[in-house]
Design a protein around this nucleic acid. Structure first.
Lengths: 151, 151
DNA sequence: TGATAACCTAGCTGTCAGGTAGGTATTCAG
DNA sequence: CTGAATACCTACCTGACAGCTAGGTTATCA
């Protein structure tokens, strides 16, 4: 299996935030308590709190504490990609353990630690990774909101 | 993370079988004992046996028992895709638990069990699945063999 | 001042990847 | 015919971790 429910729940939360932001007259500043989203989608609130914390640290959402507090998107839905959400929750995207992306952007295979010893399967996993990242980067929150903003 | 070492090891075994088949003068019938591959790639033999059993049941490799026995590709390397290998080992390819492919080929989201209740994130996971499957189906064993058959 | 809700830390529990162990069946070499 | 090689089968073990719960503390509003 691939992405855990972290990614699933996280994207759902983000979509819900985007949907509610679109509902309100002024798109900005629509604060939604997490409990509402948890109930709406049938997800465990206490667990969502963990995920939302990561989304906040990644700068994807803002929060307001206290009574009438809650969460809101940090940016317009069109400017938030699924890749950012998934990466914030699951960590760096890699199709398989031995493949990762080094700081300079290159794809690295841990089986190639011996110099000169190339990994014949690296090409495959690199292609798969590229395909996944492409699909995630090519999808924004706005693409996923049920009733698109009629603006 | 996404694919387990099952997929990784399995692909490596298949690549090794393809490589050895290409080495021998007559491409067909080159039987390789599993222990040789295990040692060559530094993978645990006993564990590989489990994976290889799946590959055989999926019809991707043939086996010969007894002394001087071993495994060989059931088809030419150009006709075996990475998708087949991964699917044989990991089961049906799905980026996330709630998404699966029904027998008739349609993509199904388990969260949509209530009719009329659509899942806003289904589009995303469908795209990701499509991208993964495309990358896997677009790669054959022949693409992965280190020194291509000079024929 | 009390209710609301974000935020934090700790822990629990079942599942499963990853691997081991030990056997049986089959085939070849000599 | 015998022994070595190798596929094939079933059962089991073990640590890690996803997924979730619990119980607090802090900030904000009515």
């Amino acid at each position: 299996m691939m992405f855990s429910t972290k990614a699933e729940y996280g994207v759902r939360v983000m979509v819900e935030l985007a949907r509610r932001a679109g509902e309100s007259a002024d798109g900005a500043g629509h604060v939604v308590p997490l409990a509402e989203i948890a109930e709406h989608d049938g997800m465990p609130l206490a667990y969502l709190e963990h995920l939302v914390a990561r989304l906040r640290k990644a700068g994807l959402i803002d929060s307001r504490r206290g009574s009438r507090g809650g969460y809101m998107l940090a940016r317009p839905a069109e400017q938030i990609t699924a890749a950012e959400i998934v990466e914030a929750l699951e960590g760096s995207i890699a199709p398989i353990e031995c493949i990762s992306q080094s700081p300079d952007g290159a794809i690295v295979c841990s089986r190639e630690s011996d110099p000169g010893h190339i990994c014949p399967t690296k090409l495959l996993w690199t292609k798969v990774r590229f395909a996944i990242v492409g699909a995630l980067q090519g999808t924004t929150l706005a693409d996923l909101v049920p009733s698109p903003v009629t603006a």
